[in-house]
Design a protein around this nucleic acid. Sequence first.
DNA 1: CGGGTTATTGATCAAATCGTGAATTTCGCG
DNA 2: CGCGAAATTCACGATTTGATCAATAACCCG
Lengths: 245, 245
Amino acid sequence: MPKPPAVPKSAAARKRPPQRRAAPDAALADSGKAARSRRTQARILDAAEELFSHHGIYGVSIRDIADRAGVDTALLHYHFANKDGIYEAVMLRRAGDVNEARKRAMDDYARKSGGKPSIEGIVRAYMQPVFERLRTGGRGFNNYAALIALANNSALWGGGTVKEYFDPAVQRLVDLLRLALPKAREEDLYWGYQFLSGALTLSYSRNARIEGLSHGRCRANDYAAIEPRLVAWCAAGLRALGACR
Amino acid sequence: MPKPPAVPKSAAARKRPPQRRAAPDAALADSGKAARSRRTQARILDAAEELFSHHGIYGVSIRDIADRAGVDTALLHYHFANKDGIYEAVMLRRAGDVNEARKRAMDDYARKSGGKPSIEGIVRAYMQPVFERLRTGGRGFNNYAALIALANNSALWGGGTVKEYFDPAVQRLVDLLRLALPKAREEDLYWGYQFLSGALTLSYSRNARIEGLSHGRCRANDYAAIEPRLVAWCAAGLRALGACR
DNA sequence: CGGGTTATTGATCAAATCGTGAATTTCGCG
DNA sequence: CGCGAAATTCACGATTTGATCAATAACCCG
């Protein structure tokens, strides 16, 4: 009886298709059943990522995703159990990569700068992986970023699993800032992060107000223009916060 | 196309009978049919405001709103035609008031400061009306602000009518900043506004990450703590942007 | 090549959704 | 009072949504 594993309702979100390792020979890395399945899942997640980033989780139906991915509705349930499963998978797919890169960049900078890291350097290291991927990561990462921005300004900041990927990088950032701003109050470091976070996420959100406001002088996704300005902005703000004790 | 599901299903709350209105005596200013109608519409908008701010426009059904307002679904269509009409009415209801107050505050400050307005003063005048209402405006304005934050980081920044209320105040802000930062590049003034806007909206959004990150040291809606820090932060950032030409 | 597992589709359901038009209440006004 | 318009409710239909079950296609391995 080929039946999709009827997972108990309580553990529905846990369900994952058995993930086989790629064939050891790997003459062709992505041939074979498992690889094909993985590619299909990726196509589903790509579609969901794009649609979620435009309309939010509730503005997209499972059918919308299935149509855009070119598969049947039931397949989404087979791979991801339900809609929340799809959403969580989308949120987690890139979370590890970008935050590992953040921690690596901050560690590298901390080592390179010896005992005297600059605020600019710390902030730049934290932001650089995101901007790099925004510029070169294709439409996929841009959709993901817009979705993160959407979730960040709402109550549903992921199902609760997302923070486990994002929070450690933030703590690393705050730790470095504490080193560079020894006179700053502890709470001001966190307020500083919150302001930084708000400005950063708005920059890769789907909001393009600035184009109309500036009469076309600024383009909303001109990340080459945004990155240095945002670094300077946040560094100055952090210094002001750290000094106002 | 985005067609909506719903959010929270409280079976008990669903069958709650329509709440009878308060005593009809009330011989006060607004009795009469028109006033009653206006009060009903206000109740509907209050309910929609709260639900939209939590779950987004697609996460709320017309029934959810009607139930919470204690009226029939058809009444929402009678007053606001359809869901988009409700959304627009919610967005516009407080838009005029807060932005008029912003312009007034900036005009007052510009006059009071003569020809030498400070960055801090300008930014404070722009933000003050919002923080004042967040502190004293009751739950209604807090819901509205959270909804604005949600819309601000998404593609649907109002149906297009909202910007006509918000943009003039922003332009007034930029005009004053141009005066106070004569060496700044034109586009940097707008980037500055964008960063300011991101940090500001995140501060009154429904995101409470900072409470967990700071281990309870910061409370997400401690506006008395946020306002002065955000003013200092943005002023420092603007100065840095304006000087880096 | 053939059995068995996995991936994918087709058909379908119960519930929820938006919207409408007819009834019913409320209330101003003559 | 009592008529008529505005405000509000009732009942309902067409459509969409999330989800499931059985049936088929693709593939691996012996």
